[in-house]
């Protein structure tokens, strides 16, 4: 009997040691809603762009939190100074395990290369996870458009 108790205690201790600190932190701070693991599983990528606006698209997994959420794109013409931000509301479809974020960036110039990184926040402006690496796209000449996310016929 004592042996069984000893094994149980050792097993429990081992489990405790192997538990990520995040779990403990969550327990101690229930308000820490950003702690769950969210990954960008697809993108970000340029969905489409005209000479004056563009849409950036990406997918995250393990979505939680508020129904109303915002995709955010930090962008600029200097990859080291993404000084502008575009933010679009998106709604979470609770029936799906993943969520597609789409953000429209307006007031762009034709024939210009823009650099950007993305993140997503909930309705309280709390970030849900890591930001993406910096990507880039180039707007077409005046009057043209580029569509990367093709519509099936």
């Amino acid at each position: 009997m004592k042996k069984l108790v000893f094994v149980t205690v050792v097993f429990a201790a081992a489990c405790g040691l192997s538990m990520p600190n995040r779990v403990v932190a969550d327990y101690q701070n229930p308000g820490n809603v950003t702690a769950h693991r969210v990954q960008i599983t697809e993108g970000p990528q340029l969905e489409m762009t005209t000479d004056s606006w563009a849409i950036i698209r990406w997918t995250t997994n393990n979505v939680r939190g508020t129904s109303l959420r915002y995709g955010m794109v930090h962008y600029g013409t200097d990859p080291h100074a993404l000084s502008q931000t575009a933010k679009s509301p998106n709604r979470w479809n609770g029936a799906l395990p993943a969520m597609i974020y789409r953000v429209q960036i307006n007031h762009l110039n034709p024939g210009t290369t823009y650099f950007y990184r993305v993140e997503s926040v909930d309705a309280k402006d709390i970030s849900e996870g890591p930001e993406s690496a910096v990507s880039q796209f180039t707007t077409p000449a005046a009057g043209e458009r580029i569509v990367n996310f093709t519509q099936p016929e």
Binding site: I55, N90, P152
Partner: peptide
């Protein structure tokens, strides 16, 4: 244009 919802707009649905 303000607050335009981007959940929709390019769903990739066929006819």
């Amino acid at each position: 244009q303000d607050n335009k919802n981007l959940t929709i707009g390019n769903l990739g649905l066929t006819n």
